[in-house]
Every structure is written in structure tokens, then in C-alpha cells.
């Protein structure tokens, strides 16, 4: 089974994140950049599937030079090779352009059975890219899965929606997105980190992407979305703080009444 896993490098949610007032984009530098945790969970599932079915796991990421660190992390966890989509012109890509470039990059990998991604990243949170990839690559989508198995070329999984769970089935090849419940990521071992250094990462820029891939990004909208303004909201300030004196319940109740909340 050949599995491609989409890896996204994001600003660490535990560190301060910001929007650059000049470019109106999320600051990617020098914020602490980490592999998005949901990407690690998707990769873990891919590695489990490789153990079960054999085959190859390819980690794919679009991002600037430093995204190589996240790809190396994926290789250290056990992926076999990497594909890095990197070009200055990719910076600030909106959802449609991002999906188009990723689809072009993925189409360079021959006979993929599964494309695995997280259901939504912690920075953009769009949650639409996996479905858009299915549209672009003309593959079935099996998205928002909290669990799935593949038997004899057929995927069966549990799709989590806001108000229910669907049991769904699709014939490979399939674009899959996974929720947090899919798997607990492993930690890279020393051996993994050492062997990762010898594994190959193929870098594709805009020119090579246009010629190598089966999906031609030209003719698609580039940067259709235009940010007009970004306003930093004032930080929330704290109100009164009381040490419990046995009257806290009444105090909260009075506050709720005063604010018209009960």
C-alpha cells in the first residue's frame, strides 16, 4: 500500500502567534514552528497501516525552507521519504491555491492508495483542503474519520459529524482526513533520527510542479482571496477576583443577575 501523508508546519499554539501588519499574513518566522499535532496522528495511522499491509509512506509538505524540519521529523518517526513543495510564490496561498499546489505535488507520486491528512490545522482551521484534494484528484473522499480499516482495497471508517456518526465505505484510492481520536503519535527514537538523515526529500518548486505533476496548476486562480485589513483585538482584561469566603456562590449569582445572565 502506498500512503502519502500531508504534514503541516504551524506556529506553535503554546507560543505567542501573530499576524504580520505589512503582509497581512500569519507570521511564519521567527515564531516557533512545529509539526501540527494532527499531522503526527495521521502519520501514526499511516505507519500502522504500513506495518499491517506493507508498502511505503511518503510525507508531503508545502512550506518555506524550514518546513524541512517537519518533514525530517516525519522521516524520524518512520516515513520512507519526503516531498517538499517550496517556492517563494507559494507563500500566502489561499485555500484553493493551496489545494491546487498540494494536488499537483501529490500527483507526482505514482499509484497512491491513500492520501492521509489531519481534519483541520491549528492555524488556518479551514478543514476543507482534504475534500478539495479529492475534487482535484478525482478520488473518493473519506473525511473526518475517527477510525478506519482497509481490507482488500476497500476502506471502512467512522465519520464524525457535529450531530452524528456515519459509517462509510470507499474503494481505494481515497483521500482521508482524520480526527484526533485516530491514533496516539509515537516519539522519534535515536535510531529513527539517525536514519532520517539518510532518507530522501524531493523538493519541487513552481516550475517543476508544473511539468512533473499530472495536475496542472496553471489556469487556476492564484491568490483569489485578498485580505483588506487586519485589526488586532484588544487583549481581554481581568475583572474582580475574590478569595472564597463562603459567600462566593451568592456573589456569582448576584453577578449573573446584574449582567442579565439568569
Amino acid at each position: 500500500m502506498k500512503i502519502a501523508v500531508l504534514i503541516k508546519q504551524v506556529p506553535d499554539t503554546a507560543s505567542p502567534r501573530s499576524v504580520d501588519p505589512d503582509t497581512l499574513r500569519i507570521t511564519r518566522d521567527p515564531a516557533e514552528a512545529v509539526i501540527d499535532e494532527i499531522s503526527e496522528r495521521a502519520l501514526e495511522k499511516a505507519l500502522q497501516l504500513r506495518t499491517e499491509h506493507g508498502g511505503e509512506v511518503v510525507v508531503v509538505s508545502m512550506g518555506p525552507d524550514k518546513a524541512v524540519a517537519s518533514l525530517r521529523h516525519g522521516l524520524a518517526l518512520g516515513a520512507d521519504r519526503g516531498v517538499h513543495l517550496n517556492d517563494d510564490s507559494f507563500a500566502g496561498a489561499d485555500l484553493v491555491w493551496t489545494a491546487t499546489l498540494l494536488a499537483a505535488g501529490l500527483s507526482t507520486i505514482d499509484s497512491v492508495d491513500l492520501i492521509l491528512a489531519g481534519n483541520a490545522s491549528t492555524d488556518g482551521r479551514g478543514g476543507a483542503v482534504p475534500a478539495m484534494l479529492a475534487e482535484l484528484l478525482q478520488m473518493a473522499q473519506a473525511t473526518s474519520l475517527q477510525a478506519f480499516d482497509v481490507v482488500d482495497g476497500v476502506l471502512t471508517g467512522e465519520r464524525i459529524l457535529e450531530d452524528g456518526v456515519q459509517k462509510i465505505q470507499a474503494t481505494l484510492p481515497v483521500v482521508v482526513s482524520v480526527t484526533e481520536n485516530i491514533a496516539e503519535p509515537r516519539f522519534p527514537g535515536f535510531k529513527g533520527i539517525m536514519t532520517a538523515k539518510r532518507k530522501k526529500i524531493l523538493t519541487l518548486d513552481a516550475t517543476s510542479l508544473a511539468t512533473v505533476g499530472e495536475v496542472d496548476p496553471s489556469g487556476r486562480l492564484v491568490g483569489a482571496n485578498v485580505v483588506r485589513s487586519v485589526i488586532e483585538n484588544p487583549a481581554r482584561s481581568s475583572g474582580e477576583k475574590f478569595v472564597d469566603d463562603g459567600l462566593s456562590g451568592q456573589r456569582i449569582s448576584d453577578y449573573l443577575k446584574a449582567e442579565g445572565l439568569v
Binding site: 481581568s238 475583572g239 472564597d244 456562590g249 451568592q250 456569582i252 453577578y255 449573573l256
Partner: peptide, 27 residues
Amino acid sequence: IFDIADLGIVGDAFTVVPQLMEALRDR
């Protein structure tokens, strides 16, 4: 959490929440 709370109670939830529920029921 107190940095962003409009009203903060430094206390044990197991004491404060039952008090609150009683106060709400009284009201």
C-alpha cells in the same frame, strides 16, 4: 484563567459550585 475572567473566585470548586447552585435555586 483569572487573567481573562470577568469574575474570579479563588476557591475549591466542590465548595463553591454547590453554593452557587443553592443560590440559583433560591433565586
